[in-house]
Design a protein around this nucleic acid. Structure first.
Lengths: 215, 215
DNA sequence: CATATCTGAAAACATCTGTTTTCAGATATG
DNA sequence: CATATCTGAAAACAGATGTTTTCAGATATG
């Protein structure tokens, strides 16, 4: 409440900068932990501070609690993924297969370069209901992003229910990317993206309800 | 080690029976908790005993620890689901669409009748690596069970890697069933099964690797 | 140099959990 | 009836964790 008055220079660095760097160190450490296969149960205050090389004291300087850090980490990863994927899809030729492939390729490349991000987005066991909601929301976002032609066909709304087709695609992609990160799937990135693109397309081209309106 | 000597009659019931009933009460209570949306982090010894109406003392009579109970609950649910689904698939006409529909219908009906089972199998956030491994194994089992014609085509081995197609189907079905249980999907059971059957078929009919062998 | 702030480490306190043990009362058995 | 076992509830103990506070030393500022 009355903290903006102090903040001296220390070690030649401004107070705001030191705080911001500590915050970033905590987010990085949080990503290390959330991006491991232990799930978010291992995200402890002491643990993340040790990983960040900071004193416990500084945790509450930047975050109100465990959940606040988890959300910050998740948002940090999602935001970057959304930005780059949107750019890749936009830059791709105006054709369903090309756009889907471009988006999937961006995701595959990103999580291959930093598996922590992939595990956080797709495979980490989240017990935190806030994080689960974020994942649902961002899944919806990506499904819309990648399947914008499906959106045009079927009229998927971002606010109302998701079609079973979209749910299926999101779940299928998550599972496939997770297995790929695990090493369970012995595919190179190129073939993974090819394969997922074809499956995505095949599902998209199904009529939403063969015998009439779906509800 | 030397417990099989005692076990008196109490309340008109044999000692073995009392133990077995307490074990069943604990498994039921464990299913209540694991089948809630809190994930397996809420499966505490005190909690499950309270839910079962038993004293903490009796937990370790039947289980070595938290993990042992979790595994017992999971196996209990999986075993029943596998048995009834296998029966449904076997009884269905010898045709891919009919067999897939029969299997999916059995799963949908079972989890609609007891959502705890569905949430445990598909949606609960599992931080327990033992449970995660069980889920992978049983997913493999069900994918093979439902897609036996795909198995014949692609030669899916239960011991080696799973094809990306199978991973996609398992993940897609899990996500879709989860959303259906949540109420996110406003479909009746019939349409859900129809839709999943068509998607399943469409994916199955894709060639595994359009440009050659997959690895 | 004197004082105020910052830093790192650790202590402190409460709570939750796993696990074992105690104990008074209920029940069966000789 | 006397004794051994069973039951339910709770206490006890250790460890992990969230969260706040203390404290000695480092660093900047007047």
């Amino acid at each position: 409440m009355a903290e903006e008055t102090s903040l001296r220079v220390y070690g030649g660095v401004e107070g705001d900068e030191r705080q911001a760097e500590r915050r970033m160190q905590l987010i990085e450490a949080g990503l290390d932990i959330l991006g491991s296969d232990s799930g978010d149960a291992s995200l402890t205050v002491r643990g993340v501070c040790k990983q960040a090389g900071l004193a416990t004291r500084y945790f509450y300087e930047s975050f109100a609690g465990r959940d606040a850090l988890a959300i910050a980490v998740y948002d940090h990863v999602i935001e970057e993924m959304a930005t780059t994927t949107l750019a890749a899809v936009t830059a791709a030729p105006a054709e369903a297969r090309a756009k889907i492939r471009a988006g999937l390729e961006n995701i595959a490349r990103t999580i291959a370069a930093d598996p922590r991000r992939g595990r956080l987005l797709f495979s980490v066991a989240l017990t935190n209901s806030l994080l689960l909601h974020r994942r649902v929301h961002s899944s919806r976002l990506f499904a819309g992003l990648l399947g914008d032609q499906a959106k045009a066909f079927y009229g998927i709304s971002e606010e109302t229910d998701i079609e079973p087709t979209t749910q299926f695609i999101v779940g299928g992609l998550s599972q496939t990317f997770t297995a790929w990160l695990d090493g369970t799937l012995e595919l190179d990135q190129r073939r993974l993206v090819d394969r997922c693109t074809e499956i995505f397309l095949a599902i998209s081209e199904l009529r939403p309800a063969p015998s009439g309106r779906s509800h």
